[in-house]
Each structure stands twice: as C-alpha cells, then as structure tokens.
Computed example of a mutant assay.
Amino acid sequence: MAYKILLVEDDADFGFMLQQYLAFADMTVVWLQNPLELAATMGKEGDFDMAIFDVMLPHISGFELARSFILDYPDFPFLFLTAKDQRIDKLSGLKIGAIDYMTKPCDPEELVLRIKNIVRRSAKKVEKQGLLHIGTYTFDHRRLLLKPAAGESIRLTEREASLLAFLWENRGCLLTREQILEKVWGHVDFFTGRSMDVFISRLRKYLQQDDRIKISSVRAVGFEIRFNV
C-alpha cells in the first residue's frame, strides 16, 4: 500500500535525500521547506497518512508548528525528525502529541518501519472510532459530524450521514437512484426521489471546500461520487 507523507524540512539536501528514499519505499512525499505553507498544503492536499516535522525551521519552530497543527487536526499522526537530540527536546516533542521522535542522522530503513507502524496503528484507531477521511474532511458517522479542514464541524442528519457513507463506500461507481433509495430510504417512490435530490444538493454544499470531491449526476439514472487526485 502506498502512503502519502507530508514532510516539513528546510534542509534542501536532507529533504531531497529523504524524499527520494521514501519514494523507493512506495511512499509519496509532499515536501515543504517553508513551514508557513503548511495550512495551504493541508487545504489543497489534505489526504495524507501522516506528517514528519523538523524542529529547527525558519519563521517558526517545529514545536510551535505542531501545537498549531493539532488544533485543526487533533488525531492526525506525526513524528519529529530532528538534529535536536537532548532529552528535554524529545520529552517536549512527545508531550505536544508526536507519535514518535527520531534524531538525525537516522537509519532510513528504521524510519520506513516506524512510518508503516504509525500509519497502521492510526488506521486501526480511525476504523475503530468509525471515522472516515473524505479528502480534507473527517467524517464521524457515529456522531453525525463532518469536519472540514478549516471551520466548524457540520452536524448531519442521520439520513445525510447514511447517504454520504453509502456514496463514499461506493466512490467511483455510478449508483442508480433505486439503489440509493432502497439503501438509505428503504423504499422507492416519487416523494423519496425528490427528497434524495435535495439531500444530494446539501452534500454538495457541505463538501464544497475540497474541489476534488465531485458528486456527479446522470439524468434519470443516478449519482456518482469521485475523488480526483
């Protein structure tokens, strides 16, 4: 399975080397040398599996960056990879919420194994909590909450949540109107069909922050949700 990693590292040589090595390990790395670009990058490409932060960065320290980051992404896994090897630094990083803290120079094979372990544990935790990542959104079906990357969470109705879950589970597939109505409404008639059209419009509005998510309609046939990378 290919992982998508966000790397915040200002050292050009080390960043390039790390990006290339992780690519050999079947990982896609989006590399930022300027930490101030983090928010924009998460908004544009927020479907990351985890992040790696240096500590000594320009403009803002990695610790400060992480503190700000977890306010918007409290459950997002990240580790620090840094030359700061003092015990007090490691403890500071772990207290902030990092899953791991590694020091440079590091063993690339060890880093790859730690990344894989972190992503696997995080995926199991998300699955257990009933969470889905839909582009830059976090969807908590159990609590009926849809949280965008920026802004307040959206409280869904039970039917909105069921409709979104069904579409996302079948993303890339054209679902007929009858399939959706049977699954989400439990029966098919003129009035439930009109109701479904209204609910589809609501979901499009809720998901408009991420323009890679498209709910397309095929006239008289049905709907399809796509995530365009």
Rank of each mutant, 00 (worst) to 15 (best):
T192Y: 03
I154C: 02
D13A: 11
D210C: 09
E109T: 06
F199P: 00
E158R: 06
M17K: 02
F24T: 15
V8I: 15
R87I: 15
Y73W: 12
T157H: 01
P35L: 09
F78L: 08
F16C: 02
D11R: 04
E64Q: 14
L65I: 08
S217M: 12
K84I: 09
Q20A: 12
A39L: 07
L132F: 01
A51L: 10
E64W: 02
L7F: 03
S162N: 06
A25G: 02
E109M: 13
P105E: 12
R226D: 14
N170T: 04
D89A: 10
V55F: 06
C106A: 13
R143H: 09
G43A: 07
L94D: 03
F14S: 06
A2E: 14
D211V: 04
L36D: 12
L156C: 02
A12K: 14
G186N: 10
L6H: 03
A98H: 05
T157S: 15
N34A: 05
A83D: 11
V8W: 12
L181K: 08
V126N: 10
S61M: 13
L36K: 06
D47Y: 02
L36E: 15
F166A: 01
L91M: 15
Y73P: 00
I180L: 12
F190T: 12
G46Q: 09
G172C: 04
E178P: 00
N228M: 13
S201E: 14
F227I: 14
C173T: 12
R159N: 09
I154E: 11
Y73R: 13
D211T: 07
G222I: 10
G93A: 11
G135W: 04
G93K: 03
G15Q: 11
V30L: 10
D54W: 04
I60C: 01
F63A: 05
Q19V: 08
L144M: 09
I134R: 04
V112Q: 07
L94C: 02
H59M: 12
K116E: 15
F48D: 14
A66I: 11
S61L: 08
S216P: 00
L81Y: 04
F166C: 02
R226E: 15
K44H: 08
R171C: 05
F78T: 05
H187Y: 15
F16T: 13
G151E: 13
I118A: 09
D189G: 00
Q208L: 07
Q19D: 14
T28S: 12
I115V: 11
R219Q: 11
E182H: 02
R202P: 00
V188W: 07
V30R: 05
P77R: 05
F24C: 08
F16I: 05
G222K: 02
D72M: 07
A39N: 05
H133L: 04
F24G: 03
I213Y: 01
F166M: 09
R204P: 04
D89F: 13
E109L: 12
A39C: 03
K84P: 00
W31S: 10
D54V: 08
Q86E: 15
F139L: 03
E182P: 00
D13H: 01
F199W: 05
R142A: 13
F227E: 14
L175N: 06
P77W: 10
K95Y: 05
L18S: 06
R143Y: 03
S122F: 07
L174I: 13
M17N: 06
V126Q: 11
K128H: 06
F139M: 03
D210T: 07
F80G: 01
E169P: 00
Q33M: 15
S195M: 11
P58F: 03
K90L: 13
D72I: 07
W185C: 06
V29S: 06
